[in-house]
């Protein structure tokens, strides 16, 4: 199976990755080869098998609803490329 260039561009758009033309060509070839390898999973009969989603037998771990110390806004914003007061600053979201 070979992925089309349009499929590669669609996946990159879903993943919010800007790729160069060279990257698109390379990933098209490599992902097609990897997915061919993955096809062997279809040989396994999983008709009555439940999927494994969580690894631990724990369910809905809760803690008491009490205020606890946390990081300050200044600490949380310290790594931001742009901040304004107590907020992250970004370009316009809506045109």
């Amino acid at each position: 199976m070979t992925l089309s260039l349009a499929e590669i561009e669609h996946i990159a758009a879903l993943a919010r990755l800007r790729l160069t033309d060279a990257e698109k060509a390379r990933y098209r070839e490599q992902l097609s080869a990897v997915l061919d390898y993955m096809a062997r999973l279809r040989q396994v009969d999983t008709t009555h098998i439940a999927p494994t989603a969580a690894m631990l037998p724990l369910q809905t771990v809760l803690r008491r609803d009490e205020v606890q110390p946390s990081l300050s806004p200044a600490e949380l914003l310290a790594n931001a490329p742009a901040a304004d007061g107590d907020t992250f600053r970004v370009p316009p979201v809506l045109e």
Binding site: A15, Y27, L31
Partner: peptide, 29 residues
């Protein structure tokens, strides 16, 4: 990038059951 692309594909509409869903079932085995 390669793994993000692969993972995004495996989770995308139309391919989720054949790839990610099947992988989770084989994981059980």
């Amino acid at each position: 990038k390669r793994r993000i692309m692969l993972g995004t594909y495996a989770l995308s509409a139309g391919y989720h059951d054949a790839y990610y869903g099947q992988a989770q079932k084989v994981r059980t085995l």
